[in-house]
Nucleic acid binder design. Structure first.
Length: 321
DNA sequence: GAAATTTGACCGGG
DNA sequence: CCCGGTCAAATTTC
């Protein structure tokens, strides 16, 4: 049997350690913030430990394959047992599947597969998967050897209408049934828009529109992308009544598109607590969200949002109730 | 009635 | 031949 050369192993190690460094930076800022939950910190710490374990193993075994823990089925790509998987409390903490793909550690004769992204998702009420911004159609489920729960197979709803080839697989964790591992396979090539119109009164037209748009990729994507959020505003002059409701997605990038300003907002939005209120003032049109309205929560007023501030950051934890 | 889900059959890679 | 992934008919939900 043949394994990757020393150079490849070195590259993988550099990747791993660089990622570890990034996570430590994240952890550092989380530790400064008292409002961040213990689980979230634990999650990051476990990720860091996992990465350093892998790097150590690479050094110890000079790139030879590390036997994955059998309690992680093939779905988990050989993530060590001390991975974040056992840690509850975080939705949509994601990592590139290549992080855990043993193909990185040895050459494969298998044909190249579609890009994959792996996410650990904490389910709402321990039962239902929070929405990810896409519309999916289930096409199968199967018991996988060694797993307690069936794996669900989903494809993009727009597979036939737009030829979108995106797939996802969902499997509940054996250890923590309130957590599911979601694997996104391939990228969306569909162009879908979900529009949410803000609250209106009898005397005013709606003033805020949230539009979730998935654009087809411009180039060959390396990993599946996430949708963009556009916040469009009109007549921002009504003080307290300008509250609106924000969907709990995780985004890699959101775009605020105001009358005269286009503001790019980088950062991740994380679902951290159960949704509580506000769904009665919410309208969705013309499409529908693929999660229940209870998944919508009031987050901030327009004033708080400070929509014209180009430095506005969605990753400010104070925004989230 | 259309759309979504369930479920057993089928297929192909290893 | 086994197993993971997909298909498609049947069934359920909206």
């Amino acid at each position: 049997m043949e394994f990757k050369g020393e150079l490849d192993v070195r590259d993988v190690m550099i990747d791993e350690l660089a990622q570890g460094k990034e996570l430590i930076k994240q952890l550092q800022s989380l530790l400064m913030d008292a409002s961040v939950s213990m689980e979230k910190r634990q999650f990051l710490m476990n990720q860091i430990i996992s990465i350093y374990n892998k790097a150590l193993n690479l050094i110890r075994f000079n790139g030879e394959p590390i036997v994955p823990d059998p309690s992680f089925s093939s779905l988990f790509g050989g993530v060590p047992q001390n991975s974040p998987f056992s840690v509850a409390g975080n939705s949509h903490m994601s990592c590139r599947s290549s992080d855990v793909d043993e193909e990185q550690l040895r050459p494969s004769k298998k044909r190249k597969t579609l890009p994959r992204r792996v996410e650990m998702v904490k389910m709402n009420n321990g039962e239902e998967l929070p929405g990810d911004g896409y519309s999916w159609r289930k096409y199968g489920q199967k018991f996988i050897l060694g797993a307690k729960f069936r794996r669900g197979y989903y494809r993009c709803t727009h597979r036939h209408s737009q030829g979108c080839a995106a797939l996802k697989q969902v499997q509940r964790s054996d250890e923590d049934p309130t957590v599911s591992q979601v694997i996104y396979v391939g990228d969306h090539t569909c162009n879908t828009t979900i529009q949410i119109t803000g609250p209106s009164t009898s005397t005013h037209e709606p003033r805020v529109h949230l539009t979730l748009t998935q654009h087809p990729p411009q180039q060959q994507p390396q990993i599946p992308t996430k949708p963009q959020l556009t916040v469009q505003t009109e007549e921002l002059n009504n003080g307290d009544q300008d509250k609106f409701y924000f969907r709990c997605f995780s985004f890699s990038t959101a775009v605020i598109d105001s009358d005269n300003a286009d503001v790019d907002v980088a950062g991740w939005l994380l679902d951290e607590s159960p949704v509580t209120s506000g769904s009665d003032q919410f309208q969705a049109s013309p499409g529908k969200m693929n999660t229940p309205e209870s998944d919508i929560r009031q987050v901030f007023t327009l004033e708080e949002l400070d929509i014209l501030d180009p430095n506005f950051g969605f990753d400010n934890p104070d925004l989230f109730i």
